[in-house]
Design a protein around this nucleic acid. Sequence first.
DNA 1: GCAAAAGTGTTCCATGTACACCCATGT
DNA 2: ACATGGGTGTACATGGAACACTTTTGC
Lengths: 297, 297
Amino acid sequence: MRSDGGRDYNPRDYPPVAVTVDVALFAIRRDELYIVLIQRGVEPFAGAWALPGGFVLPDEDLDAAAARELAEETGVTEDSVYLEQLRSYGSPGRDPRMRVVTVAYWGACSTLPAPLGRSDAAHAELVRVSQIEEADIELAFDHEAIVGDALERVRAKLEYTALAARFCPPEFTISELRNVYETVWNTKLDPGNFQRKVRENRSFQQVGQSRLAAGAEPASDVRAQQMRFERAEASWDPADEASANDAMDSSLSQPEFLQDPGPARPRSGRPASLWIAGDSDLTLNSPIPRRRATRKA
Amino acid sequence: MRSDGGRDYNPRDYPPVAVTVDVALFAIRRDELYIVLIQRGVEPFAGAWALPGGFVLPDEDLDAAAARELAEETGVTEDSVYLEQLRSYGSPGRDPRMRVVTVAYWGACSTLPAPLGRSDAAHAELVRVSQIEEADIELAFDHEAIVGDALERVRAKLEYTALAARFCPPEFTISELRNVYETVWNTKLDPGNFQRKVRENRSFQQVGQSRLAAGAEPASDVRAQQMRFERAEASWDPADEASANDAMDSSLSQPEFLQDPGPARPRSGRPASLWIAGDSDLTLNSPIPRRRATRKA
DNA sequence: GCAAAAGTGTTCCATGTACACCCATGT
DNA sequence: ACATGGGTGTACATGGAACACTTTTGC
């Protein structure tokens, strides 16, 4: 083909290839792992489910393209998700229409107690990951492989990064966090040991204070917690909605399918201390032990 | 831009983007980590070093493109390297001539005691990784970032996969393997503990037998070892060369810059048992412990 | 009061770390 | 013979697994 043997190609000679991005966005809802999918309306693969995605624009970074396509097709805005590149897929036959190389992304988002949004989504829905793993659902293109790789990555990254916090609202309790690990790994973890693990990891910071070390100043702490749970369940204040949408393309808002419909929160017992994800971005000083021979149901 | 909100694009409307592959290929030589680079002859970045790479052909898989470009530009044939996709880079400005999205690969290759090859390489050379990390060398495009990411990946994968064996010839001694870890991680590992770690990892299989448990049948084992070290240092037999090049595009052969020029092998002591990388492809049952507080020089 | 969650303490055990020590071989 | 690496034994420390047990809150 080329005999120069270097990068000395003529920029006009490039073969016709289209570049797209696709996003595998995960969320946890009611102790199950979900993924955001879109139902296709046209051929090829009409009726099948597909990852949200589309063309990279001429002057757009790959990361930006992923965030934009996700927002356009599902209404999930950039600030409420964590997105990271997964890898690229470019088999010649993966799109029957033409040569398309896609850069896949994976992400995690908390099912925020969000304002009701009119969703621009062209049929975006949360689908249970287990349905895909059991091949109960038909995915378009090679998206099944992408989802599989994304799942693998998510499960691995959970262990040695603070990724789990991205599945939670900005403030969360330790057991909410533990629930993330348990659903993604499909395991039970020892609550006591997990407690310690999180406490000694500087990546998570405590906001409120445990009610166990209480009796002293119940005032401010308890209020913080009440606020937190009110936010989760009470009706929405337009003032808050404005502040939540600020600094974002306000034509987009959280789609309703991402809202958490009720009590995946502590069924009884007491709301405990609050935590926020630390600054240390994603790395954990010591990994969360993956279950080895846990016998718990 | 698009208002459909699905993957229902017109395949003819795709923006003009070129897709290339680039390969960050590492090798170990004389206790140092090297990378294969090519010196550019033309603008942009004339005179700078770049990763081997080039266009993906219209009907070619990404993996195949990476292997082909590597072979074309450096003479390193597919069967002597391990290649894996790293990630993609597509900032709008990364190539001043036009929009180019590149799919980067990383790889490891053993500096085989290879037949002398006429190299088709347009100035391919092994460059010390330390020179790049210290920014002593100018890399074209965003290749410095790619090399950095590739290094990070290699160092991480060494820990929980049998990748290290890919830096070695098909048969190697345990201390040669240990040397891989030590140079890539820039650490010293305890020889005794490392010994055990490798032995209990099924990913590595013993070929010869330790001379320690010897006295019994020195015949076949010792011969095997002698062969191995002769292969490394003796002059080359044309018959062997033919078999080494079989099943490959025979117009390509191992370039001379990859040959190991002499004693990075046991300076004295005795040649020990031989090992080969197991079938379990790359996963290790238990990770190689990364040094924590090793005090050894 | 009871159930369920938060949180602490403690024991057991696997595994990594450090290091001493012997064996085999090439020069 | 001696230096150097292969290879084994072992004592110690760390940290995960398991589990008991107390405290707090919602119903």
